[in-house]
Write a protein that binds this DNA or RNA. Structure first.
Length: 318
DNA sequence: CACTTGACCTGTCCGC
DNA sequence: TGCGGACAGGTCAAGT
């Protein structure tokens, strides 16, 4: 589930790999993944070169020399993986494909395919695969694959200057890792959802940008706040502490290359390791590392929610 | 109006 | 072994 750290990791990778490359071909197999008409793609993407790769919230932008950009949202299962031209020719890649096509390896689940103990670069040899929605080919023979098993994600081509006019961009809240995002700003943003449960407010992209289910649970545990606490019951100290925890978990995750819970990979097809450092997310049944109470999983704001029932008590005063 | 729930999708896992 | 159904969650539309 790409959230801010995962999308940022992809951005960093693509910023190293894409600028200067010239697009020669784009194919897609699912219109909702890439709805632009062919003539528009031919006019504004083909023969254009990549000038920059940017991120805002969980949205990626690949700017082109034509004045157009790809705007991309990975949603839950989206991947953007860059694969250099296979210089060894087709002999080796054929062998790889035979391996993939054999009954045994076909039954290995995607979550295990790239798991620990497997060569982390094996994914790139298997692309494109059946989750590949869009393939962008560059003049040197390299490819950028937009894979999306569940088809929730999308990418579209649009004029760069019109990106700020997208409804989402107009409504989205501040970037939590900006220095200017201080407790006072966080507090006033939270007041937009003063009667909501804090978890719902953290997931609201208009309050702050880039938090999803993993980092909501992780930061609430860090700040010892129950996810069902109403926003207007939080005091100044708790808001300050929660912001500190948000910055901490997001920065730590970026450092670890993001979280690979199911199928997230970076621009080179590699997994992130933040999940190994998680304190509550997917830790139900295990002891809390602060107090040893068993971590539980419940449902809050329609989302699976992990918490320590001892450290994170629901406030009952006033 | 503020807030919550359902729809969009596919693959996995669990119980029967 | 197969099958139905619950579940996973980012965001928008629809519902309360």
């Amino acid at each position: 589930m790409p959230e801010l750290p995962e999308v940022e990791t992809v951005r960093v990778g693509l910023s190293r790999l894409l600028p200067g490359r010239v697009i020669t071909k784009i194919v897609h197999d699912w219109d909702k993944s890439f709805p632009n008409p062919v003539n528009e793609v031919n006019q504004f993407a083909i023969s254009a070169s990549v000038t920059a790769v940017r991120r805002r919230a969980k949205v990626l932008m690949i700017d082109l020399s034509s004045g157009y950009s790809f705007v991309i949202h990975l949603k839950m299962t989206g991947q953007l993986v860059f694969v250099k031209e296979h210089k060894q020719g087709k002999v080796e890649s054929k062998k790889e494909k035979e391996l993939v096509a054999s009954p045994m390896s076909r039954q290995v689940s995607p979550s295990l395919r790239f798991g620990a103990g497997h060569p982390s670069d094996s994914l790139v040899n298997r692309l494109p695969d059946k989750s590949t929605r869009v393939t962008i080919t560059f003049s040197d023979g390299s490819n950028l694959y937009f894979n999306d098993q569940r088809k929730f994600g999308w990418m579209r081509l649009m004029p760069t200057i019109l990106i700020p006019e997208i409804d989402f961009m107009k409504k989205v809240g501040p970037e939590p890792l900006e220095d200017s995002f201080q407790p006072s700003v966080f507090g006033s943003q939270l007041m937009k959802r003063k009667n909501s449960m804090i978890k719902a407010a953290l997931l609201d992209q208009t309050v702050l940008a880039g938090i999803g289910n993993i980092y909501a649970d992780e930061s609430l545990w860090g700040a010892k706040i129950h996810p069902e606490t109403r926003v207007n019951k939080l005091n100044e100290n708790e808001i300050k502490l929660l912001l500190k925890e948000i910055k901490y978990v997001l920065n730590l995750s970026i450092e670890k290359g993001g979280s690979t819970d199911r199928n997230y990979v970076n621009a080179e097809g590699k997994r992130g390791s933040y999940i190994d450092f998680a304190r509550v997310f997917r830790k139900e049944g295990q002891p809390c590392q602060r107090c040893s109470t068993t971590i539980i999983k419940t449902r809050v704001a329609g989302r699976g929610t992990h918490l320590c029932p001892t450290c994170q008590q629901l406030k009952r005063l006033t």
